[in-house]
Every structure is written in C-alpha cells, then in structure tokens.
C-alpha cells in the first residue's frame, strides 16, 4: 500500500464568507504499480485531493499515509515525503526560475540532500530521459526554450530526484495536439522503466482511457466512483458528471448505431486493431 486516504475532508477559508467545502469524506488506497486517473469537473476537488498527498495542504480531517509516512502526525517528515512523491503541477513550465537549465533541474536534488556531483549526474539522467540532449541545453536559459521543451525540463526537474510516485496535474493542458501526443508517450515510457506508480489528474478523457488502469471520479468534493476506465466509459453515465467521452469510445458508440459491433476498446491502438479485425472478418 503506497497511498492510503481515509475519511479525508477539507474546507477552504473556514469561517469566512468565502468558505467552501472542497472534499467530503474521501477514502481510497493506491497500491504499487498502479496507474490511477483522477477525473471530475472543474471545482470537484481533484487538485485539492492531490495537494494533500504530498503535504502541500495541511491535513485537517481524516487520515493519510503515503510511503509509510503518517500525515496526521504532528510533524510529518515532509522532506522525505516530497522526495518520494514527485508532483508536477499544471503548466509546470511557469515554475522554472534558474538562469540555466542545469541549475533548474538540480534544484530539487540539491534540496533533497544530493551532493553537487550527484545532483549534476541526476540532472543529466533526467534531462536525457525526457528526450533532450543534456550537454546542448544545460547552459541555456530555461526561458528561451519553446513551450514543449520548457515543460520537458520541468518534468526533468521532478524526475531528477527519482520519486517513487509521480503525480501529474493536467500534464497536457495548453499543448498543441502534437505536443500532447509527445507528452503522453513520454509519460507512458516513464511509467514502465522509471516510476512504478503514476497518479494523473485530468479532464482530458483520452488521456485517462489511454493510460489508467483505474479511475477515481470526483464530484462536488466526494469520491463518486472508484472503477476501471471501461466500466466508467461503457457502463456509467459520464456525461451527467460534466465529463466527456474519449474519442475511441465515441467512435465505438457511433459504429454501434450503424450496427457495427466492436469490442469495448479504450486505447487508439486497440481501436485500430479492432477495426482491422472487423474489416478482415467481413472480407473473409
């Protein structure tokens, strides 16, 4: 059990007219090796939930245990927690600050007690891992890179200290279709080799259909469903929750109306395979 959340509730700006209940009695468990999607309409509490996981929001009601660190303790070891659970925020490129790419990527490792040479080595590894050439970018200013490159560097800045769990908050927001595709295949490749457990917050359902084995559906601060993507997109009423369907599922549905019955696929690859199989079956 890597992450355990029990009866978590949270209220923003308590006792002021801005008071807002963001989370209501949320409980779930994430095991090692899972890739979990958290979905929900804007304001459903997704971001508040994940910010609790690495102690950015102080736990008030409920119990959270992450990597054997009890967050309800009086002084949880936040450094160890944050080293173990990397968090990539929405538009992570806006957090870049250092004068060179190298020192920006080394910021995390140095904060977590790496030595200078270890940090440099970690930075080289992380930058190469996100598909950029360390030696050619290390001395450039992060601000002169393109949007997609900046985001890669920001990801490298998190990967550099080798977290066990990676939390991604809307990793493809604001990217063009090509950039989105690149980002998604990058995340997919990381999931296998580098990081065992990935938690993705998104309202892009294509992303969820493509990568998650499990989906948590948030609605008005409550955990509505804890289910699989195929269950969610093929059995449950997704649109009533203010969410859209992934394109793959939409195509399967449209074909069903034309009496072309395909298996319940989620990923693009499976859809193409199913279509080819269907076409092949008709020709034979």
């Amino acid at each position: 059990m890597l992450v355990e959340v029990k009866n978590l509730s949270y209220v923003y700006s308590e006792k002021t007219p801005f008071e807002k209940q963001a989370l209501k009695d949320v409980s779930f468990v994430v095991d090692e090796g899972q890739s979990v999607g958290i979905v929900g309409a804007t304001g459903s509490g997704k971001s508040t939930l994940v910010q609790h996981l690495n102690g950015l929001i102080r736990l008030k009601n409920g119990k959270i245990t992450v990597l054997d660190i009890d967050l309800s303790a009086k002084k949880p070891d936040l450094k160890a927690l944050r080293k173990g659970i990397g968090m990539l925020f929405q538009y992570p490129e806006y957090q870049l600050f250092a004068d060179t790419v190298a020192s920006d990527v080394m910021f995390g490792p140095l904060n977590f007690g790496f030595s200078k040479t270890e940090a440099e080595e970690a930075a080289r590894r992380a930058v190469n891992m996100v598909g950029m050439d360390y030696d050619s970018v290390k001395d450039r200013s992060p601000l002169e890179l393109s949007g997609g490159q900046k985001r890669r560097i920001a990801i490298a800045g998190v990967l550099a200290y080798r977290p066990k769990i990676l939390i991604l908050d809307e990793p493809t927001a604001g990217l063009d279709p090509a950039g989105k595709r690149e980002m998604l295949s990058l995340i997919a490749s990381l999931k296998g080799e580098e990081i065992s457990t990935v938690i993705t917050v998104s309202h892009n359902m294509d992303e969820i259909a493509e990568f998650s084995q499990r989906v948590l559906v948030m609605n008005n601060g409550k955990l509505l469903y804890d289910t699989t993507p195929s269950e969610l997109f093929y059995r449950l009423d997704v649109e009533a929750l203010g969410l859209s369907l992934p394109h793959t599922v939409r195509i399967v549905r449209l074909l069903k109306e034309k009496n072309i019955i395909l298996p319940e696929v989620l990923t693009e690859k499976d859809l193409v395979a199913a279509l080819l199989a269907y076409a092949g079956g008709r020709n034979a």
Partner: peptide
C-alpha cells in the same frame, strides 16, 4: 506549492538563506 514540492523550504535558516529561498 510547486517549489515546495521540489523540496524548497521558506521558513528555515537565517535571514540571508530565507531571502535567497524567495528567488524561486
């Protein structure tokens, strides 16, 4: 939040260290 997630701390150390921590 983003910098804290990368291990930055803003409330430890002396005056100069704290001022430096504000740069990010």
């Amino acid at each position: 939040m983003a910098q804290k997630a990368r291990g930055a701390s803003f409330d430890t150390g002396g005056l100069i260290k704290r001022a430096k921590a504000l740069l990010p």
